[in-house]
Design a protein around this nucleic acid. Structure first.
Lengths: 222, 222
DNA sequence: ACGCGACAATACATTACTGTACGGAATCTC
DNA sequence: GAGATTCCGTACAGTAATGTATTGTCGCGT
């Protein structure tokens, strides 16, 4: 009964690359753990965690479930590994676009661009994130990871607003508001097309508020 | 093969009250269609539509599945009826708190209160809404209803901001931003406790922006 | 060249859930 | 109060999914 068994419930992703991984380059003669996770991403994006079936993955990969149960202990192991990888990728993503503070306005623009406009391109990623968030409502481990990611992203936003010169008292407010606004727009607009104008409007208003030019919304009856 | 069969896929809720509904008042000797839908609400709130099992509902109601298949054609009929009822309730809810325009500031406060603060009390309703939104990502009918509700709510917000004296150009922006912000905060904060301060901060900032006093976020380097 | 280990196929047992047919009890109608 | 109707129980068939045990097949090292 030999079983490598990935980390499972553990936190770190634990790149399971001790596999020889063959010399066969493009042909998929041998599957790796990440291959299964990639396939799982497609299923999760399409149907959520509830519709994540190992038989479906096997068909998609052109193998039988015998392969799956060598790479993973069981279905739960797949789910937890998937969540771990998701969290890790969100963090390297955050690290990749950490604000350098040289051109805050441009950085804000790029951030909103990534979160809002690019979301319509990165459909897969958006759908996975929404699925994870939904799953987190009934899975404690997922809830923990989502909370970690949320907190890190709000921290990132706070950094940005500090660089923009916002007073410290409102940094937290602005960062939180912008974060829930971006998440909300992804939730509301997911699956809609022709939303680029709405997105642009949101970006416009958020930018205006963030840059402190937001005093002209009233008609003048002060 | 007698079968009343509720509307199923049709849009209107079509109160199926041609039932005599017995004289037995508190005892649940006879079940109605709404009883099943109420039980379904609990399951949907807890596990989403994917975990909505008719056997579970039957146990919860103290009957067997034989009752279910009299009241509903099949599982899909239950889901569609549930969605119909959900949409209808969202609309009467909107109608109930339609802004009268007499005291816009107070109305804004009450709206935010309902959407944000009260959400932590109304857990069941919040969870159902999130489940419906998630289900809408892979169910066309649910997607249609959610879109209808979203649009109606944004319209409501626009009405409010017009009453607040915002210039028409920014009414749409403000209404949309506030809507996605509220949805996003529900998504992000669902299942967290001790979020009342965060919610209050968001409310504060949204109110400030909406009332046009938002020009003081910058530190002064214009 | 053979034997070991990584990886996958096959077959089987089990469980959970749906839908349907039919029968029975309670209640309304006339 | 007899019969039709409403509502629910029971029993059965069928499907889909998981997990496990066992066997089979590559490919590498020596």
């Amino acid at each position: 009964m030999p079983r490598p068994l990935g980390t499972g419930l553990t936190m770190a992703s634990s790149k399971n690359s001790p596999r020889t991984n063959r010399n066969v380059a493009p042909g998929k003669s041998q599957l790796t753990r990440d291959d299964w996770l990639d396939a799982a991403a497609g299923e999760v994006a399409a149907g959520g965690f509830g519709n994540l079936r190992v038989l479906t993955l096997a068909k998609k990969l052109g193998v039988t479930r015998g392969s799956f149960y060598w790479h993973f202990r069981d279905h739960e192991d797949l789910v937890n590994s998937f969540l771990d990888r998701w969290r890790d990728r969100r963090f390297v993503e955050l690290d990749y676009m950490r604000p350098k503070g040289e051109n805050p306005e441009e950085e804000l623009h790029q951030l909103l661009q990534l979160l809002l406009t690019d979301a319509s391109r990165n459909v897969r990623r958006l759908q996975v994130e929404l699925a994870v968030r939904d799953f987190a409502r009934r899975n404690d481990y997922a809830a923990r990871l989502v909370e970690e990611v949320d907190e890190a992203r709000v921290e990132q936003n706070k950094l940005l607003f500090r660089n923009l010169g916002s007073v410290e008292d409102q940094v937290e407010e602005l960062a939180t508001l912008m974060y829930v606004a971006t998440i909300g727009s992804q939730v509301v607009l997911s699956g809609r097309q022709g939303n680029t104008d709405i997105i642009r409007r949101i970006e416009h208003l958020v930018a205006r508020v963030a840059l402190g030019q937001g005093g002209s919304t009233n008609s003048g009856k002060e």
